[in-house]
């Protein structure tokens, strides 16, 4: 985004933007209201129909939930899964993305679009087929089985977003670094990667949060040994007639994405973050 378009946008923003306001309001209703309801539920000790507000507020269900060992082990499982998957995905996908962006090789375009194909078909059917294969490989119900299945889920945006980021890096900058005496690897590490970093960071963040919330793969491949937070939440909602357990877990689940978002805004400006998504 050039400085000019930023200025134009700012100027445009001075007039009341009715379409934007309307959209914002609609989003608030759809996202914020349910969130508020869930948060309220998590802090209600008693809330019976038809009362609009809870009869009794308190931390009863928070204490009850946090006292459970399976919640803590699920949290640890989820965090370590998300970390390992993100790390592996970064190590595998960044060099691949660089190759897609800068090198010409046989079958490049077909391979590039095949990542889209993985997302284009009903996921559950695919998962069942993979589960059948994993069963023979003794990967069902293991940590690394879940890592593998979630890794596949991150491939699309961990390749497509960094490819766009690498392609946006001015080739003359890379050439100037070669000229100054840097070999190809050094150029990648010192010039290309830092230049593409804000965009790549948003892809890494998406990968982490996406993996943390991923449910179908984790459930189908991981059950019953590997229980992630979302899987545990589903179990709670299915088995417990008390809504509050589910509400507390939902709020707990928001924590990582909230932390990640705040962290992101600190590390990189919101404008560069938006650029990562093509804003």
């Amino acid at each position: 985004m050039s400085a000019d378009t930023v200025a134009v946008r700012r100027r445009a923003r001075r007039r009341p933007d009715w379409a934007g306001l309307g959209l914002g309001l609609a989003l608030t209703l759809v996202i914020l209201v349910p969130m508020l309801v869930v948060i309220t539920w998590s802090f209600s000790n008693v809330w019976r129909y038809p009362s609009i507000l809870p009869q009794q507020m308190g931390l009863k269900f928070w204490q009850a939930t946090l006292a459970r060992a399976d919640v803590w082990s699920a949290l640890v499982t989820s965090l370590s899964l998300a970390s390992v998957v993100t790390l592996l995905s970064t190590v595998i996908c960044l060099p691949a993305a660089y190759a897609f962006a800068r090198l010409k090789f046989w079958g490049r375009d077909v391979l590039f679009f095949s990542f889209l194909a993985g997302q284009a078909f009903p996921k559950f059917g695919l998962l069942v087929a993979i589960a059948a294969i994993f069963l023979q490989l003794n990967l069902i119900s293991t940590f690394w089985g879940v890592v593998l299945i979630q890794l596949v889920g991150t491939l699309l945006f961990m390749i497509w977003i960094p490819v766009a980021a690498f392609q946006a890096v001015d080739r003359r900058m890379e050439e100037a670094a070669r000229d100054a005496g840097a070999g190809p690897l050094r150029v990648f590490w010192s010039i290309t990667l830092p230049q593409a970093a804000p965009t790549i960071f948003s892809a890494v963040l998406l990968s982490f949060v996406g993996t943390f919330y991923e449910t179908e793969g984790a459930w189908l491949i991981g059950a019953p040994q590997i229980r992630t937070m979302p899987v545990l939440m589903i179990t709670f909602i299915n088995n417990q007639p008390v809504i509050q357990y589910g509400a507390v877990l939902s709020v707990l689940l928001w924590v990582p994405s909230l932390v990640a978002l705040v962290f992101t805004r600190r590390v990189i400006g919101s404008s560069t973050f938006a650029r990562g998504f093509g804003g």
């Binding site: 001015d170 003359r172 670094a177 000229d179 100054a180 005496g181 070999g183 010039i191």
Partner: peptide, 29 residues
């Protein structure tokens, strides 16, 4: 390859590395 040639180039678009300051740009080589 360019990194092993005793040549230095000034590009039309200046091609400065925006993630480094002036000192960093000049000191890189």
């Amino acid at each position: 390859p360019p990194e092993r040639r005793p040549t230095a180039m000034v590009f039309q678009s200046h091609a400065l590395w925006t993630h480094m300051n002036v000192f960093g740009n000049i000191a890189f080589g």
